Amino acid sequence: MLRIDFTQEDINKLHYERYHHPHPLVQKKMEVLYLKSQGIKHKDIYNLCKISKTTLTIYIKQYQLGGVEELKKIEYKGRPSELNQYSDILKEYLEKSPASSVAEASDAIEKLTGIKRSPTQVREFLKRIGLRCLKVGYVPGKSVEEKKIEEVKKYRVETLEPLLYEAMSGEKAVFFVDAAHFVHRAYLGFLWCFARTFICSPSGRKRFNVLGAVNAVTKEIITITNETYINSESICQLLFKLSNLVLNIPITLVLDNAKYQKCKLVQDYAKQLGIQLCYLPSYSPQLNLIERFWKFIRNECLYSKYYASFADFKAAISNCLDTGNTDKQESLDSLLALNFQTFKKVQILAV
């Protein structure tokens, strides 16, 4: 029998690591040596730990060589996957034709290589070659046309960035304007849970409309709300509210080309109040900072939340609008950073 003199310190380490080490193989090694330290006979250790005589000998020699730290080493590398030799081919294929599920990826891999693997093995292979399961985003169809990309880039460089520079230097107040229409319904989100969770879906389709203007620098949000429609009169109300802020510097609004925002009534009233209107190029929602703010509202108080009454629904959104700039200042500063996505290098899914 291989004899070892265990120190009390090592016995304590073995006892701790057999439960707390992250790798199950190391836990087993620690268990074997702990039982050995307690004077348990080898044949009993074989039975208790379900190992062979040879394995026990290897573990003991590892411990003799370097103590507890030596037992933590895992030298078994496993057999390389047969799929590895097809990595480049599969990466090229899956980049052009992304799979919507592991099962779909498994079928494609089998057709291309003739190798069939379990869903677990396929999932690990996909991760190994750099794939991740990501939610598909969407962009307006015309926004990825080369001509449109160049137009948006020119607007960003020649118009938007100079405006933002003036705003950051305190020479001008720049607000991004848009409307959101929150329908009283179930907004399904993601939850970490042991079983799939369901939320109730309210009856009816009442809408809470919010016309907002977010300050590019301070992230302050100015709103006009109603339960009917957002129209040119709503824009005029917002213009009046902004003019009454008494900022003592010129105000510029960055907004899209919706008809009710670009009509003669709005333009004349903005001119009367001394407010500049700066319209975005068509098909460029990524340049409107407030679009991210609406996403923030949905994440904070709508996704996976149930409001039995429309009044509760409105109150939750209103509270988030009122407190977002104070209670969630750090999150908003990060979300509403003054950098804007371009779609020149994004992958567009083929039909």
Rank of each mutant, 00 (worst) to 15 (best):
V183M: 13
L242Q: 08
N244M: 09
A105F: 07
R117A: 13
G137Q: 14
I45F: 00
G39W: 13
Y283G: 11
N339W: 11
V266S: 12
V174W: 01
L338K: 07
R156T: 14
F240M: 08
E291L: 01
Y93F: 08
Y93L: 01
S331E: 12
H15L: 13
V254M: 03
N288I: 11
L239H: 03
Y303Q: 03
V157K: 15
L164R: 03
L280T: 00
N325Q: 02
T7S: 15
G189M: 06
I109D: 00
L255V: 07
L321Q: 02
G274Q: 09
F343Q: 06
Y59K: 12
V183A: 02
A173S: 15
V217E: 11
S331K: 13
A186M: 04
I222E: 10
C49W: 02
K43E: 14
K41N: 09
F240P: 00
V254Q: 00
K344A: 10
V210L: 08
L160P: 00
R207P: 02
T225V: 14
V139G: 00
I40W: 00
I290Y: 00
S331I: 13
K345G: 04
N319G: 11
Y279R: 07
P98S: 03
Q85A: 15
G66H: 04
A167G: 12
I11K: 15
V152D: 06
K73A: 02
K259Y: 07
F176S: 01
V139W: 07
S201F: 04
S201G: 06
V139F: 09
K172V: 02
K264E: 14
S106M: 08
I74H: 14
C320G: 06
S201L: 08
R123G: 06
A316E: 13
A103K: 04
A216T: 03
L265A: 14
Y155M: 05
K264R: 14
V32N: 03
S81K: 03
S234M: 13
H181V: 05
K241V: 02
F343I: 04
Q38D: 05
L65N: 12
I348R: 10
I40H: 02
R292K: 15
P80H: 12
L2H: 08
K77G: 07
R3E: 09
K206V: 01
N257G: 13
G66I: 01
A337M: 04
K147D: 14
V351C: 10
V136C: 11
L188Y: 10
K91P: 00
N299R: 03
L48G: 01
V152C: 15
L112Q: 02
I251Y: 04
N231D: 15
Y260A: 08
E70P: 02
E171W: 05
V157N: 13
V157L: 13
G78M: 01
T252I: 05
A316S: 13
R79C: 03
F175K: 01
Y86P: 05
H20I: 06
V68Q: 09
E233L: 08
I221Q: 00
